[in-house]
Every structure is written in structure tokens, then in C-alpha cells.
Amino acid sequence: MSRNSITFIKFIRSLSTEARTIKVERIADELLNLNRFERHDFTVLWRLKMGLDRYGAPVAGPGPLGPSLSGPAAADATAASAEKTAFDIKLEKYDSAAKIKIIKEVRSFTDLGLKEAKDLVEKVPCVLKKGLTKEEANPIIDKLKELGATVVLE
């Protein structure tokens, strides 16, 4: 464990029950009520937002918690962090004649019901799916474009 992790754990242990906020307690309760798939989705999202790579090593950047780099090392680190790995599929517009087919397609790659998928498609421009790799997103985008939708990868 790193020194920062140990310090953080000691800090958390030193907090009394009274010092914990209702918000934190509510979040903890909600996390405990997640099913297995929701827990997996949460951990993936959490790791992305915390800047962790696949194996859990933190991505260090300049600032109080990470070392600052200069020279060629800084250019390499900036180039590596600029490369995007998670993409969102955004529906820009669609052909009104193909609306039903597009709703069915949206339902096929999301866990939405008919009403939710219809509402989502009708509020264009909107993000249909978040956090996909390019390999996962390309077949979906191709299918939606075949149906008459204008879709972008963000």
C-alpha cells in the first residue's frame, strides 16, 4: 500500500460515527443493495472516474498527489493520457420513417423498456450508451446508420 492510502485509511478509522454524514451513509446503503451486474458496472465506472487503469495502478499527474514531470517524460505522459479509451454513442438525428426500427435497435443494445427507449430516441440529440470501447461501439453505430440515423462517437 502506498503512504497516501495508509494515511487515508487511518483518517477514515479516526472518524467517529457522528462525523459521518447522512449522504455517505445513504450512498453506502445503496451500494450494498446493488446486484452483481450493477456492482460490476459501478466498479468499472468508478475506476474510470478515479483514473485507474485496468490493473489498478493510479494514473499519476501533476499536483499534490502525483509527481510532476518535465521534458520528454511530460510529453509522453500527456500523449498517453490524451488517448481516449471510453466512448459514448450520441444520436444526433434520425429519419422519422425509421423511428420504430431505431427504437427497436436501441432496445437491443440497452436494458431499456419500450417506453424508455422511445422517450430517449425522441429527445435527440441524446447519448444512447456510455463508456464503450471503439470495438463495441462501431457495430452499433453502423447498424443505426443503416437505419437512417445520424450517430457520432464522442
Rank of each mutant, 00 (worst) to 15 (best):
I140V: 13
T150Q: 13
V106C: 03
A79G: 06
L120A: 05
G61V: 08
A97F: 07
T43V: 15
K90V: 13
E92A: 05
K84N: 10
V59S: 15
I89C: 04
G66F: 05
E38V: 11
T133K: 10
N35S: 13
A97G: 06
F87R: 04
L69P: 02
V59C: 12
F42C: 12
G131I: 08
P64T: 07
D111N: 12
T78N: 01
S81L: 05
E116N: 14
R20H: 08
A137L: 14
Y55P: 00
G63K: 07
D119P: 01
K90D: 02
G131K: 09
K115N: 05
I6D: 08
V151Y: 14
G56C: 06
K101T: 00
R13M: 09
K99N: 08
I89V: 15
A57S: 06
L31C: 10
L52E: 04
F42M: 11
D76F: 13
R47Q: 12
N4S: 04
I102F: 06
R3F: 01
L52N: 12
K104A: 12
L52C: 08
D95E: 09
A137H: 06
A28H: 00
D76M: 15
E92S: 11
A137F: 08
E92P: 00
L32T: 11
K145E: 15
P72I: 05
I22C: 04
E92M: 09
E38F: 04
P62L: 01
I6F: 14
